[in-house]
Each structure stands twice: as structure tokens, then as C-alpha cells.
């Protein structure tokens, strides 16, 4: 069916407004999550090297296939919230290397409570939820690639996508113990 009428969607759909509200959301999120930070953080520099370190720690924290382009954008957004992000990543990488870690279980117990653990959990959360803050206008970095859909991908639909085809789904479900790969 063709849309022959002029589409006049509200400006709230446009990226311009999303950026405006995002700044407010980010600052609010930063203040809420890290009360010791100054209210207005200086814009952080993000580089390919920073992105590579973000992906390196991400691959140790999250045992799944991760898309580098999503990671680069999320990392930049997290650094805008938390200027100490790269130092904290280095701290986490040091702990992981000391344990010769290949997966998160190898070193996570050695991460001390406080900023390092908070950052590790924030990175994990971002990969699973696809957002880096809980603000109502938070920018979404991943929808169908958000890992929250992974552990149920063999049964549950990713909303708005389809698993099968017309009337092709059934009442069958695999055991809870059959964790899918993702």
C-alpha cells in the first residue's frame, strides 16, 4: 500500500529533538549515578584506541558476540557520562590480565566494590539493554542486537520482529536449561 499523502510526523520523531532531550537525560543520569562528579563534565575525547579498549574489556565482561560499531558508540556515550571511564577500563583490564582471564567468571570476584565494579556492571548493562542510562529519553544504541533478547531467543519474539511465519508458532517450548547460543 503506497503512502500518497504528505507524511507530517511530529518533530519529536526527529534526531534534532532526540539530541536535545538526550543531553538533559545524560546529565541527569550522570548526576544520579555518580554524585561525586561535577554537574557539567567536560566533553570527553573518544578515539579508535579508546574504542578498542572498550571492546577488549567488553569481550571479557560479556561472553557473547559483540558488534564493534555498537560498542564504539556506547563507549563514547558512557565516557561522556563518566570521564574516568578509560582509567577504570584499564583498572579492570589489569585485574583480568593478572588472573589470565578469558571470561568474566575468571576475574569478576576480584573486582573491588566501588567505581571499578560499578563501571563493569554499567558496561554489561549497556550491552544487554542497549542504553547507557535509565532516562526516559535515553538514546538507544542497540535494539535487536541488545543481548537481553539472547537468553530467550529460541522461544520469545523480539517485539516487532517475527520468529517464524503465519500461524507457524506452536505451544512447544524447550527446557529452561537449553540456553541458546548468541
Amino acid at each position: 500500500m503506497s503512502d500518497s499523502y504528505p507524511d507530517d510526523c511530529p518533530t519529536a520523531f526527529s534526531l534534532t529533538r532526540r539530541r536535545d532531550v538526550l543531553v538533559g537525560g545524560l546529565l541527569f543520569g550522570a548526576i544520579a549515578a555518580l554524585p561525586t562528579l561535577p554537574a557539567v563534565a567536560a566533553p570527553a575525547l573518544w578515539s579508535d584506541e579508546a574504542a578498542a579498549r572498550f571492546m577488549e574489556i567488553s569481550s571479557l565482561l560479556v561472553p557473547h558476540r559483540l558488534k564493534a560499531e555498537i560498542g564504539s558508540r556506547m563507549g563514547a556515550a558512557m565516557m561522556a557520562l563518566n570521564p574516568a571511564l578509560l582509567q577504570q577500563i584499564d583498572g579492570l583490564l589489569s585485574i583480568a590480565r593478572a588472573k589470565n582471564a578469558r571470561v568474566v567468571e575468571d576475574f569478576f570476584a576480584d573486582v573491588p566494590d566501588g567505581p571499578l565494579k560499578d563501571t563493569a556492571l554499567a558496561i554489561i548493562s549497556a550491552w544487554y539493554l542497549g542504553v547507557v542510562t535509565g532516562a526516559p529519553d535515553a538514546e538507544v544504541f542497540a535494539y535487536e542486537y541488545a543481548l537481553m533478547y539472547g537468553p530467550t531467543r529460541d522461544v520469545m519474539t523480539i517485539p516487532s520482529y517475527a520468529i517464524s511465519g503465519p500461524n507457524r508458532w506452536t505451544a512447544d517450548a524447550p527446557p529452561l536449561s537449553n540456553m541458546p547460543e548468541f
Partner: peptide, 23 residues
Amino acid sequence: SPLGAAAALKKGLVGKALDAEIR
């Protein structure tokens, strides 16, 4: 799944334990 994931993340779980709790 979004509700399960949000609740499991709040528990501070990681790795296989996180995935199992989300599921």
C-alpha cells in the same frame, strides 16, 4: 525478556549466571 533482563541485571549477576537468570 526486557523485564527479565532488567531484573536480573539489578541483581549484579554476570556471565552465565546472568544469562540463566534472564532466561
